[in-house]
């Protein structure tokens, strides 16, 4: 019967890491104890209140002021429960904080409102973390500016990161699929847009993906495709495509030759080096009426060409 109830009230996300089931087990143990105590004590309170409700004006009440044995019992029992629950939590968490030696390392950099990943062989990816199923992976994380926190609900892991310090977390994905990654430490306007996807794939798919960049023989990818990928990963959080203002100006019809007034009053027509310049150091060319919050991006030459050609396709 208990499992049936736990089944209904199981709101935890899918158990996708090695310890997720144990974490959920601990959570269920605590929840059962809590709900039992709350319901029992409330029931007893309401029972007493109703059973001894005031029937006559000077109803005889028992003059009980204290009961030493009862009081010691209900002090010791919660303390024992506390010990037990702490021990449960400690054992699993101890494992969470000690990554195995051979775990493959991925570097994570949180920057205002997007995630950057870099693998051991130097492959970079933005907004998408690909890991092989069944193998432990250790994320070594830092932030380029403010506090961020790397949270994967399905893996039950979370760790803050701040500039000038490396924090780490590790997990072993047990089931493949795509999972959400959130930033849970408040970091400004697009804090709710700072999400990424965790793709858990089979070992082979992971290796192909990892070495994708290495073989030059693959047919050249159209610049607009890489541009679009960069747009969705880095720019979508602040620049929309449908003309609406998110944080920065919208990219709708950006190459239509329309005049834009900058903050310092100069008028400018969008062209290649305007885009190149406002990616490299954006604060020099902020369009009037928009907050100067755009961070600088270091894009390689082919990525820049990709972004520019993608923008040209936007009508």
């Amino acid at each position: 019967m208990l499992d049936w109830i736990l089944e209904i009230f199981d709101f935890m996300p899918v158990e996708a890491s090695s310890w997720a089931s144990r974490v959920d087990y601990i959570n269920n143990v605590i929840t059962v104890i809590s709900v039992f105590c709350t319901v029992a004590i409330t029931f007893v309170m309401i029972l007493f209140a109703w059973k001894y409700r005031r029937k006559s004006e000077n109803q005889k009440t028992a003059y009980i002021t204290h009961n030493a044995t009862l009081e010691t019992i209900w002090t010791i029992i919660p303390t024992i429960i506390c010990f037990v629950l702490f021990y449960f939590g400690y054992t699993v968490y101890h494992e969470m904080r000690n990554p195995p030696v051979g775990a493959n390392e991925v570097f994570v950099k949180g920057q205002t409102w997007y995630w950057d990943f870099q693998y051991a062989n130097g492959k970079k990816s933005t907004g998408e973390l690909v890991v092989p199923v069944g193998e432990p992976v250790k994320l070594i994380m830092t932030s380029a500016d403010v506090l961020h926190s790397f949270f994967i609900p399905a893996m039950r892991v979370k760790e803050d990161m701040y500039n000038g310090n490396y924090s780490y977390l590790w997990f072993t994905p047990t089931s493949s699929g795509t999972f959400d990654i959130f930033c849970t430490e408040y970091c400004g306007t697009q804090h709710s847009g700072m999400t990424a996807k965790l793709k858990v794939v089979s070992k082979e798919a992971y290796n192909d993906w990892l070495n994708e960049k290495k073989d030059p023989s693959a047919e050249p990818v159209l610049p607009e495709v890489t541009g679009k990928a960069i747009y969705t990963a880095k720019c979508a959080a602040c620049h929309s495509l449908d003309g609406s203002k998110v944080v920065g100006p919208s990219f709708k019809g950006i190459y239509s030759g329309a005049k834009h007034v900058l903050q310092d009053g100069t008028e400018v027509v969008v062209d290649d080096n305007y885009i190149r310049n406002s990616i490299a150091n954006p604060l020099s060319q902020i369009v009037a009426g928009y907050p100067p919050v755009m961070p600088a991006f270091q894009l390689s030459e082919d990525e820049l060409i990709g972004v520019i050609s993608y923008m040209k396709t936007l009508k």
Partner: peptide
């Protein structure tokens, strides 16, 4: 006063989910 007792029990017991390290890794800042 009786509502206080009931509500504070829910508050106190959910505090235990947040005190246990294993579950706090999931529940923190949610």
């Amino acid at each position: 006063a009786m509502a206080f007792v009931f509500l504070f029990m829910i508050a106190g017991t959910t505090g235990i989910h947040l005190a246990t390290l294993a579950t706090d890794a999931h529940y923190h800042d949610t």
